[in-house]
Computed example of a mutant assay.
Amino acid sequence: MDTLRALEAFVHSVELGSLSGAARALDTTQPTVSKLVAGLERSLGVRLLRRTAAGLSLTEEGQRFHERARRMLEDYGDAVSDVREGIQQPRGLLRMSAPVTMGQRHLNAMAVEFLGLYPDIELELVLDDRFVDPLEERIDVSLRVGGALPPDLVARHLGTWPRVLVASPDYIAARGKPRKPQDLLAHDYLRYAAGDDGVLLQGPDGPVTVPVRSRYRVNNAVALLDSVLGGAGISLQPTWMVADLLADGRLVRVLGRHTGPAQEVHLLYAPRRHQPLRVRVLVDFLAERVAKLPGASRPVTR
Protein backbone atom coordinates (compact mmCIF):
# COMPACT_ATOMS: atom_id res chain seq x y z
CA MET A 1 0.00 0.00 0.00
CA ASP A 2 1.16 3.52 -0.80
CA THR A 3 0.89 4.85 2.75
CA LEU A 4 1.49 8.49 1.84
CA ARG A 5 -1.18 8.37 -0.84
CA ALA A 6 -3.57 6.66 1.56
CA LEU A 7 -2.98 9.33 4.20
CA GLU A 8 -3.70 12.03 1.60
CA ALA A 9 -6.92 10.26 0.60
CA PHE A 10 -8.04 10.01 4.22
CA VAL A 11 -7.20 13.60 5.20
CA HIS A 12 -8.76 15.09 2.05
CA SER A 13 -11.90 12.98 2.53
CA VAL A 14 -12.30 14.32 6.07
CA GLU A 15 -11.55 17.96 5.28
CA LEU A 16 -13.58 18.08 2.06
CA GLY A 17 -16.43 16.04 3.48
CA SER A 18 -16.66 13.35 0.81
CA LEU A 19 -14.71 10.73 -1.10
CA SER A 20 -15.61 12.45 -4.37
CA GLY A 21 -14.19 15.75 -3.11
CA ALA A 22 -10.96 14.00 -2.15
CA ALA A 23 -10.85 12.35 -5.58
CA ARG A 24 -11.06 15.73 -7.30
CA ALA A 25 -8.36 17.19 -5.06
CA LEU A 26 -6.05 14.24 -5.76
CA ASP A 27 -6.93 14.09 -9.46
CA THR A 28 -8.14 10.51 -9.26
CA THR A 29 -11.42 8.57 -9.03
CA GLN A 30 -13.78 8.00 -6.11
CA PRO A 31 -13.29 4.21 -6.17
CA THR A 32 -9.53 4.72 -5.94
CA VAL A 33 -9.92 6.98 -2.90
CA SER A 34 -12.29 4.47 -1.31
CA LYS A 35 -9.75 1.67 -1.81
CA LEU A 36 -6.92 3.78 -0.39
CA VAL A 37 -8.89 4.63 2.76
CA ALA A 38 -10.04 1.03 3.17
CA GLY A 39 -6.44 -0.16 2.82
CA LEU A 40 -5.32 2.33 5.45
CA GLU A 41 -8.01 1.08 7.82
CA ARG A 42 -6.94 -2.54 7.26
CA SER A 43 -3.29 -1.70 7.92
CA LEU A 44 -4.22 0.08 11.18
CA GLY A 45 -6.78 -2.51 12.25
CA VAL A 46 -9.39 0.15 13.06
CA ARG A 47 -12.25 1.84 11.31
CA LEU A 48 -11.56 5.54 10.67
CA LEU A 49 -14.65 6.68 8.74
CA ARG A 50 -18.34 5.93 8.89
CA ARG A 51 -19.89 5.96 5.41
CA THR A 52 -23.62 6.68 5.30
CA ALA A 53 -26.09 8.11 2.81
CA ALA A 54 -25.79 11.44 4.65
CA GLY A 55 -22.02 11.57 4.14
CA LEU A 56 -18.85 10.83 6.08
CA SER A 57 -18.17 11.05 9.79
CA LEU A 58 -15.13 10.19 11.87
CA THR A 59 -15.07 7.36 14.34
CA GLU A 60 -13.46 7.99 17.72
CA GLU A 61 -10.24 6.40 16.42
CA GLY A 62 -10.52 8.45 13.24
CA GLN A 63 -10.77 11.68 15.21
CA ARG A 64 -7.55 10.90 17.07
CA PHE A 65 -5.76 9.79 13.92
CA HIS A 66 -6.87 12.66 11.65
CA GLU A 67 -4.93 15.49 13.30
CA ARG A 68 -1.71 13.49 13.44
CA ALA A 69 -2.13 12.37 9.84
CA ARG A 70 -2.63 15.97 8.73
CA ARG A 71 0.53 17.03 10.56
CA MET A 72 2.48 14.16 9.02
CA LEU A 73 1.48 15.34 5.54
CA GLU A 74 2.44 18.91 6.42
CA ASP A 75 5.82 17.75 7.71
CA TYR A 76 6.37 15.75 4.54
CA GLY A 77 5.49 18.78 2.42
CA ASP A 78 7.85 20.93 4.48
CA ALA A 79 10.67 18.43 4.04
CA VAL A 80 10.15 18.34 0.28
CA SER A 81 10.08 22.14 0.16
CA ASP A 82 13.30 22.39 2.15
CA VAL A 83 15.08 20.00 -0.22
CA ARG A 84 13.87 21.82 -3.30
CA GLU A 85 14.46 25.38 -2.13
CA GLY A 86 18.09 25.40 -3.15
CA ILE A 87 17.31 24.57 -6.75
CA GLN A 88 13.83 25.98 -7.31
CA GLN A 89 12.04 29.28 -7.20
CA PRO A 90 8.98 29.68 -4.94
CA ARG A 91 6.07 28.02 -6.69
CA GLY A 92 2.55 26.79 -6.14
CA LEU A 93 -0.82 28.15 -5.03
CA LEU A 94 -1.20 30.63 -2.18
CA ARG A 95 -4.53 31.64 -0.67
CA MET A 96 -4.67 34.90 1.26
CA SER A 97 -7.58 36.60 3.04
CA ALA A 98 -8.01 40.25 3.98
CA PRO A 99 -10.74 42.79 4.79
CA VAL A 100 -12.53 44.15 1.72
CA THR A 101 -11.44 47.77 2.06
CA MET A 102 -7.78 47.03 2.74
CA GLY A 103 -7.83 44.73 -0.28
CA GLN A 104 -9.40 47.28 -2.59
CA ARG A 105 -7.33 50.23 -1.39
CA HIS A 106 -3.91 48.59 -1.14
CA LEU A 107 -3.56 44.80 -1.31
CA ASN A 108 -4.80 44.34 -4.85
CA ALA A 109 -1.90 46.43 -6.18
CA MET A 110 0.52 44.63 -3.86
CA ALA A 111 -0.74 41.26 -5.12
CA VAL A 112 -0.08 42.23 -8.73
CA GLU A 113 3.43 43.40 -7.79
CA PHE A 114 4.09 40.15 -5.89
CA LEU A 115 3.04 38.01 -8.87
CA GLY A 116 5.44 39.97 -11.04
CA LEU A 117 8.30 39.10 -8.69
CA TYR A 118 7.42 35.39 -8.46
CA PRO A 119 6.19 34.08 -11.81
CA ASP A 120 5.81 30.48 -10.58
CA ILE A 121 3.34 31.40 -7.83
CA GLU A 122 -0.45 31.51 -8.14
CA LEU A 123 -2.22 33.82 -5.70
CA GLU A 124 -5.88 33.78 -4.69
CA LEU A 125 -6.91 36.89 -2.73
CA VAL A 126 -10.10 36.37 -0.70
CA LEU A 127 -11.64 39.68 0.39
CA ASP A 128 -14.12 39.27 3.22
CA ASP A 129 -14.91 41.40 6.28
CA ARG A 130 -16.01 38.40 8.35
CA PHE A 131 -13.51 36.40 10.40
CA VAL A 132 -11.94 33.84 8.07
CA ASP A 133 -10.43 30.89 9.93
CA PRO A 134 -7.16 30.16 8.08
CA LEU A 135 -7.02 26.55 9.27
CA GLU A 136 -10.60 25.65 8.39
CA GLU A 137 -10.68 27.48 5.04
CA ARG A 138 -7.19 26.54 3.82
CA ILE A 139 -5.89 30.12 3.94
CA ASP A 140 -2.09 30.36 3.94
CA VAL A 141 -1.83 33.98 5.10
CA SER A 142 -4.52 36.21 6.59
CA LEU A 143 -4.24 39.96 7.09
CA ARG A 144 -6.20 41.10 10.13
CA VAL A 145 -7.12 44.73 10.81
CA GLY A 146 -8.13 45.01 14.46
CA GLY A 147 -10.08 42.36 16.32
CA ALA A 148 -9.02 39.51 18.58
CA LEU A 149 -6.08 37.35 17.54
CA PRO A 150 -6.55 33.55 17.50
CA PRO A 151 -4.25 31.86 20.05
CA ASP A 152 -3.45 28.95 17.72
CA LEU A 153 -1.93 31.09 14.94
CA VAL A 154 1.27 33.08 14.56
CA ALA A 155 0.44 36.80 14.57
CA ARG A 156 3.09 39.06 13.03
CA HIS A 157 2.48 42.67 13.98
CA LEU A 158 2.89 45.09 11.07
CA GLY A 159 2.04 48.43 12.61
CA THR A 160 -0.49 50.73 14.24
CA TRP A 161 -2.64 53.24 12.37
CA PRO A 162 -4.74 55.83 14.27
CA ARG A 163 -8.20 56.91 13.17
CA VAL A 164 -8.73 60.58 12.37
CA LEU A 165 -11.78 62.74 11.68
CA VAL A 166 -12.00 63.87 8.06
CA ALA A 167 -14.36 65.76 5.77
CA SER A 168 -14.32 67.13 2.25
CA PRO A 169 -13.27 70.75 1.62
CA ASP A 170 -16.74 71.46 0.18
CA TYR A 171 -18.44 70.22 3.35
CA ILE A 172 -16.21 72.37 5.56
CA ALA A 173 -16.78 75.40 3.31
CA ALA A 174 -20.54 74.94 3.62
CA ARG A 175 -20.86 73.93 7.29
CA GLY A 176 -17.77 75.29 8.98
CA LYS A 177 -15.02 73.46 10.84
CA PRO A 178 -15.57 72.05 14.34
CA ARG A 179 -13.27 73.60 16.94
CA LYS A 180 -13.92 71.23 19.84
CA PRO A 181 -15.34 67.69 20.08
CA GLN A 182 -18.81 68.83 21.20
CA ASP A 183 -19.13 70.83 17.97
CA LEU A 184 -19.65 67.50 16.20
CA LEU A 185 -23.20 67.47 17.59
CA ALA A 186 -24.08 70.22 15.11
CA HIS A 187 -22.66 68.34 12.12
CA ASP A 188 -23.58 65.37 9.93
CA TYR A 189 -21.58 62.47 11.28
CA LEU A 190 -21.25 59.40 9.06
CA ARG A 191 -20.41 56.01 10.51
CA TYR A 192 -20.12 52.33 9.80
CA ALA A 193 -23.45 50.57 10.33
CA ALA A 194 -22.13 48.22 13.03
CA GLY A 195 -20.58 51.01 15.09
CA ASP A 196 -21.85 52.78 18.20
CA ASP A 197 -23.78 56.04 18.11
CA GLY A 198 -21.12 57.89 20.09
CA VAL A 199 -17.58 58.63 18.93
CA LEU A 200 -14.62 58.09 21.28
CA LEU A 201 -11.73 60.52 20.84
CA GLN A 202 -8.36 60.88 22.54
CA GLY A 203 -7.11 64.46 22.83
CA PRO A 204 -4.75 66.65 24.81
CA ASP A 205 -7.18 66.68 27.74
CA GLY A 206 -7.68 62.92 27.72
CA PRO A 207 -10.44 60.74 26.30
CA VAL A 208 -13.86 62.15 25.47
CA THR A 209 -16.99 60.50 24.10
CA VAL A 210 -19.31 62.64 21.97
CA PRO A 211 -22.86 61.23 21.69
CA VAL A 212 -23.22 61.94 17.98
CA ARG A 213 -26.16 60.43 16.12
CA SER A 214 -25.86 59.52 12.48
CA ARG A 215 -28.60 60.02 9.90
CA TYR A 216 -26.56 57.94 7.45
CA ARG A 217 -24.94 54.62 8.25
CA VAL A 218 -23.49 52.13 5.76
CA ASN A 219 -21.95 48.66 6.17
CA ASN A 220 -19.20 49.15 3.57
CA ALA A 221 -16.11 51.19 4.33
CA VAL A 222 -15.48 52.17 0.69
CA ALA A 223 -19.05 53.45 0.36
CA LEU A 224 -18.61 55.38 3.62
CA LEU A 225 -15.43 56.99 2.35
CA ASP A 226 -17.09 57.86 -0.97
CA SER A 227 -19.85 59.61 0.98
CA VAL A 228 -17.29 61.68 2.87
CA LEU A 229 -15.52 62.58 -0.37
CA GLY A 230 -18.89 63.59 -1.82
CA GLY A 231 -19.43 66.11 0.96
CA ALA A 232 -22.05 64.23 2.99
CA GLY A 233 -20.44 64.74 6.37
CA ILE A 234 -17.62 64.02 8.80
CA SER A 235 -16.30 60.52 9.50
CA LEU A 236 -13.64 58.77 11.57
CA GLN A 237 -11.25 56.96 9.22
CA PRO A 238 -8.00 54.98 9.68
CA THR A 239 -4.95 56.79 8.39
CA TRP A 240 -4.01 53.91 6.04
CA MET A 241 -7.30 54.66 4.32
CA VAL A 242 -7.09 58.45 4.00
CA ALA A 243 -3.47 59.62 4.29
CA ASP A 244 -3.09 60.00 0.52
CA LEU A 245 -6.43 61.82 0.25
CA LEU A 246 -5.36 64.26 2.97
CA ALA A 247 -2.03 64.81 1.26
CA ASP A 248 -3.58 65.74 -2.08
CA GLY A 249 -6.28 67.94 -0.53
CA ARG A 250 -9.32 65.82 -1.39
CA LEU A 251 -10.01 65.55 2.34
CA VAL A 252 -9.20 67.82 5.28
CA ARG A 253 -8.48 66.86 8.87
CA VAL A 254 -11.07 67.82 11.48
CA LEU A 255 -10.12 68.30 15.15
CA GLY A 256 -6.47 67.71 14.34
CA ARG A 257 -5.43 67.23 17.97
CA HIS A 258 -7.85 64.34 18.45
CA THR A 259 -7.69 60.75 17.24
CA GLY A 260 -9.96 57.75 17.51
CA PRO A 261 -9.04 54.22 18.63
CA ALA A 262 -6.06 52.97 16.62
CA GLN A 263 -6.12 49.96 14.32
CA GLU A 264 -3.53 47.21 14.79
CA VAL A 265 -2.62 45.26 11.65
CA HIS A 266 -1.31 41.69 11.81
CA LEU A 267 -0.45 38.86 9.47
CA LEU A 268 -1.75 35.49 10.63
CA TYR A 269 -0.46 32.10 9.53
CA ALA A 270 -0.18 28.56 10.84
CA PRO A 271 2.56 27.81 13.40
CA ARG A 272 4.44 25.26 11.32
CA ARG A 273 8.12 24.57 11.90
CA HIS A 274 8.99 24.85 8.22
CA GLN A 275 6.69 27.08 6.24
CA PRO A 276 6.80 26.45 2.47
CA LEU A 277 9.03 28.92 0.68
CA ARG A 278 6.06 30.44 -1.16
CA VAL A 279 4.41 31.29 2.18
CA ARG A 280 7.58 32.78 3.61
CA VAL A 281 8.21 35.06 0.66
CA LEU A 282 4.59 36.29 0.76
CA VAL A 283 4.78 37.00 4.50
CA ASP A 284 8.05 38.91 4.13
CA PHE A 285 6.76 40.82 1.09
CA LEU A 286 3.56 41.89 2.84
CA ALA A 287 5.33 42.74 6.09
CA GLU A 288 7.57 45.16 4.20
CA ARG A 289 4.88 46.70 1.99
CA VAL A 290 2.07 47.02 4.54
CA ALA A 291 4.39 48.54 7.15
CA LYS A 292 5.11 51.33 4.64
CA LEU A 293 1.47 52.33 4.25
CA PRO A 294 1.13 56.01 5.17
CA GLY A 295 -0.05 57.20 8.54
CA ALA A 296 1.48 54.54 10.81
CA SER A 297 1.90 55.85 14.34
CA ARG A 298 5.00 53.80 15.17
CA PRO A 299 7.51 51.49 13.49
CA VAL A 300 6.70 47.89 12.69
CA THR A 301 7.35 45.37 15.47
CA ARG A 302 8.92 42.05 14.44
Rank of each mutant, 00 (worst) to 15 (best):
Y189G: 00
M96A: 09
E74A: 11
R217Y: 03
T301D: 08
L184K: 06
H157D: 14
H12C: 08
L229A: 07
F65L: 11
V100H: 12
L56H: 03
S227D: 15
S81D: 15
V80I: 15
L40F: 03
A186R: 14
I234N: 06
A291Q: 06
H106K: 13
A173W: 05
Q104L: 15
P162N: 09
H66S: 02
R253G: 02
P238G: 05
P204Y: 10
P151F: 03
K180N: 12
Y192A: 06
D129E: 11
R130G: 12
G45Y: 04
P238Y: 10
R84N: 11
T239I: 00
S97V: 06
T101M: 09
P31R: 08
V154F: 01
L267M: 11
L200T: 14
H106W: 15
D2N: 13
V228A: 14
R253H: 03
L44R: 14
G230C: 01
R289Y: 02
A291D: 05
Y216C: 11
L165K: 01
V37A: 09
L277F: 09
P294S: 04
N219E: 12
I121D: 02
F131C: 09
T209Y: 01
T29Q: 13
R213Q: 15
H157V: 01
G116W: 07
T101H: 13
D129N: 15
H187E: 15
P151M: 05
I139N: 06
S81M: 02
L286K: 04
G146M: 09
T3A: 10
E85N: 06
V212P: 03
H66R: 10
E122T: 08
Q237Y: 09
L127T: 13
Q88M: 14
D188V: 05
D140P: 03
L246K: 06
G86N: 13
A155W: 03
Y192I: 08
L4W: 12
R163Y: 05
A22E: 02
T29D: 13
Y189W: 12
A25Q: 10
